[in-house]
Computed example of a mutant assay.
Amino acid sequence: MAAGRTVTLGIVSPGAMGSALGRTWAAEGHRVVATVAGRSERTRGLATGLELLPDLDAVVATSDVVVSICPPSAAEDVLTDVLAAAARTDASPVLLDANALAPDVVATLAARASTAGLALVDGSVSGGPPSPDGDTVLYLSGPRADEIASLAARHLRRRVVGPRVGQASAVKMCTASVYKGTTAIWAQALESAEALGVLDVVLHDLGEEFPQQVAGAGRRIAVATAKSDRFIAEMEHIARTQAGAGTSPELFEGMAAVYRRLAATPLAASSPEEAAALTDLREVLSRLV
């Protein structure tokens, strides 16, 4: 791909983040395609602004770049499906894996892609879905990372962090350990405080040091709970990453247990959009029982 050239990008799958990424590229004149075959009505709604094709074969055959952005537990199956579609259609797109995976896992995926004759770029997203008032960064690594970074994308900063597949994922594993790990700590602490009858005192104490975090605790915990099912695997990948780095995996094995418990609560049945409307902390905590 030559720098500055208009390309076709295929989004697999067009959820909240994938669709938003697609629209950032489309806003700069790139063609962005996806399929919602077999997907939920929510996903169909989120895919607004993308060119919808009938199936994955059509997406892969049409695309210069295929972007995989899905729950980490599905990443290997998505790659299998994309490689099969490429073989059926004799296509050879560049693959961008933008999932929350441990570096050694994405390296394994890259090796599988290479065996099939396709190049895989390692990517990770920091921040929420790209928006005019947000700050979203796409970290990239691997031999062809510069090609993806050169694609104009509105409201999306692109940063190449190194030449090796796995380096962009390593960034995600480290930053997510702070962002999502602290959310799990807030949930544990405030649920415990409520159960023990000391929530007001705990909030007052924490509010002196973390006023903004206390003010937004209800919404933050609610949104994380709505996404908790996918966060379980992400915490497990963080634990795997930390073990590989020579640090202790036990902390994030515990964080996975927190999100596994949250995923079993009534609040977990909410969509992220519904959860984002919940701001009353006590209401949120009551729905975690």
Rank of each mutant, 00 (worst) to 15 (best):
E191G: 09
G218S: 10
P211F: 08
A195S: 13
G162I: 08
A145K: 04
A168Y: 05
R230W: 06
P163Q: 11
S192D: 12
G181K: 03
L251P: 04
G197T: 08
I232P: 02
G218C: 03
K180W: 00
L251V: 15
V201S: 15
D122S: 02
E253I: 12
A224K: 00
A224N: 09
F252D: 00
Y139M: 10
L251W: 07
A187N: 04
A233R: 09
R220T: 15
I148C: 11
H237P: 04
R240N: 12
D229K: 11
I185L: 15
L251I: 14
E147M: 11
I185S: 12
S248P: 06
V214T: 12
F231V: 02
R219Q: 15
G166K: 03
S131T: 10
F231T: 00
A187V: 07
L196C: 14
R164P: 03
A193D: 08
P163I: 08
V202Q: 08
W186N: 05
Q167S: 09
D205I: 14
Q167R: 05
H155M: 04
D146C: 08
T225L: 03
A245I: 10
A152M: 06
V223S: 02
G207R: 03
V198A: 13
V137M: 09
E236H: 08
P132K: 11
R230M: 10
L120T: 01
T175R: 02
A145V: 02
S141G: 13
P249W: 00
L196I: 11
G216F: 05
A170N: 07
A233Q: 13
L118W: 00
V202F: 08
L140A: 02
V171Q: 01
A243T: 09
A184H: 00
C174Q: 08
Y179W: 14
T241R: 01
M173D: 05
D133Q: 15
I238L: 03
Q167D: 05
V178P: 07
D135T: 10
P249R: 05
G244Y: 04
A239N: 02
E208P: 04
T225N: 06
H237N: 08
G197Q: 09
S192N: 12
S150D: 13
T136F: 01
Q242E: 13
V171K: 00
A256M: 03
T182L: 15
A193F: 12
G127C: 04
V214S: 05
S150W: 05
T182V: 15
R159H: 14
V165T: 10
E250H: 13
Q242I: 09
A222R: 03
S150M: 04
D135M: 13
S192L: 15
A149H: 10
R158F: 05
L251A: 15
G218R: 01
W186E: 11
L138F: 06
D135C: 11
V223P: 03
H204N: 14
H204R: 15
L199S: 09
V214L: 06
P211Q: 04
L120V: 04
